[in-house]
Design a protein around this nucleic acid. Sequence first.
DNA 1: CCTTTTGTAGCACGGTCATGCCAAAAACAG
DNA 2: CTGTTTTTGGCATGACCGTGCTACAAAAGG
Lengths: 229, 229
Amino acid sequence: MDPQERRRAVVEAVFRVVERDGLEQASLRNVADEAGLAIGSVRHYFAGHADLMVFAMRAMIERVTARLTEHAERLLTADAPLRPPHERQETVVRMLAEVLPLDEERRREAVVWLAFVSAARTHPPLRSHADEIYDGLLTLVTRVLEGIRNAGRLPADADVALESRRLCALLDGLSLEAVLHPGRLDAETMLAVLRRHLTALAAGDHGGPAHRGNAPVAHDRGPLPHRLR
Amino acid sequence: MDPQERRRAVVEAVFRVVERDGLEQASLRNVADEAGLAIGSVRHYFAGHADLMVFAMRAMIERVTARLTEHAERLLTADAPLRPPHERQETVVRMLAEVLPLDEERRREAVVWLAFVSAARTHPPLRSHADEIYDGLLTLVTRVLEGIRNAGRLPADADVALESRRLCALLDGLSLEAVLHPGRLDAETMLAVLRRHLTALAAGDHGGPAHRGNAPVAHDRGPLPHRLR
DNA sequence: CCTTTTGTAGCACGGTCATGCCAAAAACAG
DNA sequence: CTGTTTTTGGCATGACCGTGCTACAAAAGG
């Protein structure tokens, strides 16, 4: 059988186990059982447990990235500036909503995301990938906000770097809460919060020149955000 | 030795292990080693591993709650409305900043918080406590925003329930990111983001009557938020 | 003094884990 | 067919886990 396909199936099993029982239950045995394979078979495609984990984490990253790039292209088409304002905002909402666990598929991804980035705190082999996710989201949000500002829908004195951190934190917080308290934060509320934030961002005054002696937040995002051109 | 004191010391060891190696390493053996005790001694004070975990989680909850109530009392003193506006805002900032990992002590608490609420997703005995934390924060934030609105520093048509979810998500997101990416989100930036959000909240227009067909978000917080009167 | 309670320490069992190593089976090439 | 490579399955080892249970020391009460 196609090795590529086998690895995909195993990773899918990893996701199911992580979602159902948590990352600490994603042992080679449990994953093999979940995939309907013998433990030796799984070990034929992956060098060991650590290898399987990083591979699964990368698969999750690339899946989300693929979805985001798709939306990014739609957002960056040349005719975008011609659309009416509320329609453009709706496009932004849909793009950012792609990282929120609004449906079952994205909820499963968010669960896996939280499991891996949390594990990365104490598992060095996962660290760089977790940081990559954070940097990717921050860069994406920064680009979106810069786009909005350039379209004139954001006050010229807005601190885009600071607002990007704020929007990032909001998105991460919504994902976290939706994953950990599924019964208390439904999809409509998440969307309402996101829309509220964006309208406030577009309409709100930006406190004039620095509400207090806060130097503007530097971000200095790297050369390029993985993909997303 | 005082049993109360022994339990406290053991819980402290749990926190250290969780911070250093993650919750999955907080076995009875590792905790006992960290506390300088024999494994049997730890088991004399706690019925088992599950018991120790809930006890440690409760200790974390009560420590944070105690700090918050202290600030709440300071905020709710009768002369509060007499203070100048920016000073009142600074009090609010300091109160909400109490849940952010701004210094090493609070950072350790945030790490433990994230470990336990994440574990609660798949560990039923921890679920209710995790939900209690979420409800507690949401209620606290709601009260604070209601206080600001009653002080006239928030537009009358502001959707306090929705804004509470938004501010909650922001705080949770900041904590999450600071815990998982300590090098990329420092204390000053977190404070700047929080201040920015509050000033935008106080100054921003609130979109008039519902930007779209979004029904106001119902929260219906329970009878009382644990402590916090 | 002895007895009872309380704290401390740890052995032993059954379980799960990752992994090194090996053998059977299957697919494939000549 | 034969020989080779890939794939699958699994055994054995050593480690760590929670917990039942026992042994011993120290204090407390009589």
